[in-house]
Amino acid sequence: MVHGEEQWTSGAGMAKMSRRTFLSRATTTMVGGIGALMGIPTVAYLVSPAKARGGLGVDRLPLGPISKFPVGEPTLFKAAIERKTGWVTQTEELAFYVFTEDGRNFSAMSNICTHLGCRVRWITDDEQFFCPCHSATFNKNGTVASGPPPRALDQFELLVEDEQLFVVGKVEA
């Protein structure tokens, strides 16, 4: 065979390289290029959905003008949000007890008992949240008053803008 006898000189004073070696290396490099061109998008494509995180599913959830919230008594408000997972959109209902002492500062807490997830309700006479499942009670600010629940009711972060109240997220414990 005569191949390999031709000598190729690469520029800039590099060592002499046989045609065969050059072709081999160029081929390997290009195969690597093809691999990268297809491999990198593949990884990005596969990893993509893992980037989605939980949360409210919306930036902010409007609850309405602040004037409609009764002062001094926690009141239950319900809001439907659309949560999109992949290409499927589901409607979920979120419920909050919204509480304000002065009509300016608001707090919102979940109506889900932190014990086993029953729905608590506000008993006006007792000034407490009552969970019918195991007779647990919570204070007005959501802390546990009696019964088995391990922690206070979950709180939500609120935002007042243009006299409108929005829920903007969960308060992380």
Binding site: P41, T42, A44, Y45, V47, S48, P49, G86, W87, V88
Partner: peptide
């Protein structure tokens, strides 16, 4: 249709694949 649209518009590099 929805899943193809999801691939094309929402998945990273989905349009490319």
């Amino acid at each position: 249709y929805n899943s193809v649209s999801f691939i094309t518009n929402e998945i990273t590099a989905g349009w490319l694949i």
